[in-house]
Simulated scan of single mutants.
Amino acid sequence: MVRCGAAALRKYGSFIDGLRLYVRGGTGGMGYPRLGGEGGRGGDVWFVARERTTLKSIRDRYPHKRFVAGTGANSSVRALKGDKGQDCEVAVPLGVSVLCDGGRQIGELNAAGERFLAARGGLGGSLATNFVPCKGQKRILCLDLKLIADVGLVGFPNAGKSSLLSKMSHAKPQVASYPFTTVQPELGKLMYKDYKQVLVADLPGLIEGAHANRGMGHKFLKHVERTKQLLLVVDISGFQLSIKAPFRTAFETVVLLTKELELYKEELLSKPALLAVNKMDLPGARESLRELVQQLQQPHDFLHLLEEEMIPARTLEFKDVIPISTYTGEGIEELKACIRRSIDEEAERENEEYRKKQLRLLQPSAGDRR
């Protein structure tokens, strides 16, 4: 269960992916007893999805994080029906889930212009209420942001995800030769000659146990949920988090990343996936790559050599395995082409499914044909 407490509001640098707000609908207007007049309803508070909006901009612009709609107009001799109070609209980023104070999701906003009624205004005073207005609904809600991107970069720390993003796009993530350089999600755009743009999210490095929230794993893994495709990035020479941690080969790294995704949310493994094998400029990388490809082609011949808790119920099937070097630039253009091809194939598949669905809806049923 997601909580709205301090843990949910933890931020990484200037990036915020959780915000707690107080919202209250407007109070209704007074009724007019002598003539049976009815006061106007209080205004509503709405969350409206807007592009180029961030949770940080909401926090900076409204430091008190309180949003109250207008009061309904009183009934009078001139206007027996009072006007409705002014609505309060709060612009929120795309990809926001709305959670109640207990952590239960009650709505989400994924496309520009989508609206969510956060707090309803109170009824105006009328005969039914003895002409006394009602107060508006008041709630404490959490906005939980999950990045929307075409491709999500997934890997352990120091695999070279940030370097890869900077090579493929104009993003400028922090890059260094030590783990945990990336402490906040970074977004970059891949630009193609036909002006097609593909949005790529570089997610902070996972560690073993991320599914159980080790290393703030849930805060990172949740951003994978709304990416259309996965791009796993592994170091061909293997990975070791610390001196006390076990060394993992490139194959074991792939298996562990798959296991972490599966334990967090099994549906993630149904996303189309590519594998970028980084640091191919290192000595012995070609031989290690041949061994890795063989292991990926026949994974069950090697899985029995691993600890049982490392083995996922199902293995990821990669559409392509691309050897790269973010140091020399080897394979970067090929990787960009593979990403574009995968995105286009998936879009075509979705379009074909939509066309088939529309045809089924248009076909008359057996009863209609009679």
Rank of each mutant, 00 (worst) to 15 (best):
G40W: 00
S97Q: 13
A91E: 10
L94N: 07
A69V: 03
C100R: 13
R41H: 05
V132I: 15
L117S: 03
G95A: 09
R50T: 10
F116E: 00
R66F: 12
G82A: 05
L94M: 11
R120S: 06
V68I: 09
R115A: 08
R61C: 14
K56Q: 14
E89M: 02
S126Y: 04
A111D: 15
D87R: 00
A49T: 03
R66L: 12
K81E: 14
F47M: 01
F116Q: 01
G85S: 08
T53E: 12
V98R: 00
G103P: 01
A111L: 09
K65V: 13
A119D: 00
R52F: 14
R120Q: 10
A112G: 11
G125T: 05
Q86Y: 15
D60M: 09
E38T: 11
G122S: 05
S75E: 02
G40T: 00
A118I: 00
P93Y: 03
G95F: 09
G40L: 06
A128C: 11
V48Q: 01
G103Q: 04
S97M: 07
D87M: 01
R59F: 12
V45L: 03
D83E: 15
A118Q: 02
R120D: 08
V98E: 00
L99R: 06
V48I: 10
R120A: 07
Q86E: 15
G43Y: 06
F131Q: 04
G121I: 02
E108V: 04
K84C: 04
G37W: 02
G39T: 07
G39L: 12
G124V: 10
H64L: 15
R41K: 12
A111F: 12
K56S: 13
S97R: 03
E114Y: 06
G125N: 07
G40K: 01
K84G: 06
N130Y: 10
T54W: 10
A73K: 11
V96Q: 04
R61P: 09
R115V: 07
D87L: 03
K84R: 09
G121N: 07
S57I: 10
W46P: 02
D101Q: 11
T129S: 04
E38Q: 14
P63Q: 13
S126T: 08
K81S: 15
E114S: 06
L35R: 11
E51A: 11
V77E: 15
E108C: 10
N110Q: 12
C88L: 12
E114D: 09
T129C: 05
V48A: 02
V48P: 00
G125Y: 07
S76Q: 04
Q105P: 10
A49G: 04
D83V: 14
H64Y: 15
L117D: 02
R115C: 07
E114P: 06
F47D: 01
G40Q: 00
P63V: 09
A73F: 09
N130K: 09
G72P: 02
G42S: 13
R41L: 10
R50Q: 14
Y62G: 14
A69S: 11
R78I: 14
G42P: 05
F131G: 01
S126D: 10
K65I: 11
K84S: 05
Q105M: 09
G102L: 14
S57T: 08
